[in-house]
Design a protein around this nucleic acid. Sequence first.
DNA 1: TTTTATTTGTCCGTATGTATC
DNA 2: GGATACATACGGACAAATAAA
Lengths: 251, 251
Amino acid sequence: MIFPNGRHAGPPRAGEPTGIALWRQVADGLERAIAAGTYGVGTKLPGEKDIASLFGVNRHTVRRALAELSERGLVRAMRGSGTFVEAQRIAYPIRPRTRFSEIIGTSGREAGGRLIAKATEPAQAEIAHRLAVRTGSTVVRLELLRQADRVPVCVATTWLSAARFPDAARVYAAKRSITSVLAHFGVADYRRASTRVIGTLAEAGDAMRLALAPGSPILLVDSVDVDLRGQPLLVTRARFAAERVEFVVES
Amino acid sequence: MIFPNGRHAGPPRAGEPTGIALWRQVADGLERAIAAGTYGVGTKLPGEKDIASLFGVNRHTVRRALAELSERGLVRAMRGSGTFVEAQRIAYPIRPRTRFSEIIGTSGREAGGRLIAKATEPAQAEIAHRLAVRTGSTVVRLELLRQADRVPVCVATTWLSAARFPDAARVYAAKRSITSVLAHFGVADYRRASTRVIGTLAEAGDAMRLALAPGSPILLVDSVDVDLRGQPLLVTRARFAAERVEFVVES
DNA sequence: TTTTATTTGTCCGTATGTATC
DNA sequence: GGATACATACGGACAAATAAA
């Protein structure tokens, strides 16, 4: 049956038959609109039926398009509430020179950090092994909350040898940068030796500090930084809010 | 006050005062037992009160130890049921030579794969850009379910240029390996150019295919593989079951 | 289907040693 | 020294989920 406007109920138009699936065209259109700033971060997209009439397609087509964008993390649909534009993830390159402040800074954001705990303790077997010190020897543990533009990005637990870096906690409190702490103890440069990434769900404490809903996914990153002779300096276990970062490895 | 057994309510013993927290000693003990195979993968640990009497400590101390192991992913506690030993994550190195079958094989597992969908379609803008072809030009899309020891590890969507690799789907169905498909078209070798990892929650379809509970975290990996001259060959979007892999980057 | 026992999760409390200000 | 906060350790009680009878 032909409708008054000349269209029939069957397959769609969307301008011309380009050979590209309609829902893809809708998804691309929405993506461009988001990229162009028509819909800002955190704002609500128009309702599905509004988008449908905007593009002249069926609501199911819009749903398929939104599902695509949702899977790619661009938007998040909340039942009964609407579909919202997600914040863009911070691109976090993993390479020999991996410094939180530098990475956040080059992404055009302001890096921040807060020391939420510090301790001097005997090294547990696994930490000691990765730090290349004897099990039970004294290490300094720093618990940091790191932020980009005041938004918490990760909670990181860092261990250093207390013999090589005595008072590291106090120095960090003053300098507010791991790199500065190492420099203070005469380490001019260092590099990332290994990085291990696993995905899991946030613990209650981390979720709270990262301002995440319970059950939110996190990226748990275990890393070892070494000096230029290959001697381990730092062992870190960081919990990143998964929705706020993307790790990038270039070969 | 001193109890009949000579202990008082205050600080602990656990053999001797080693200076290491009791709960840590319990955690280490359990970890060693798991590593030694006393408790195999998937089996249930003794109940908390049993472990407590085994180590001669309070149940709360055991709970603190189990929380540590749980946070590290070694065990998973299920209320009303017990605490179970988790399967070790497959170490998945990300480097220039990144081949699924090779990685699974060297981990001592048997790699498997199943083609769950194939299509020939015009390239979407983003895919085209990464594949260095014109938007709208024809590409082959392969949807693969990849397994290690019959356990699903990831669902991967791979795009190839249809001009360069015509009939890629049919060839894959016969060879059952991406590397073989490329070899069939004269590509002797290729390497991983870039890898992007984000963490999110599984979509319903992926969760089902990966045999994951709804709401399980996944690692979404976007990658580009290029030939030795740097020409893009494959663009892949893979969804890994987060609980089954750990990505490793060595510098 | 209902009941019962088991097991983990979450509170309450008490007490002690240590680090910090 | 004193005051305070915190981590550790223990004891008990009950809730909630699960599994078996």
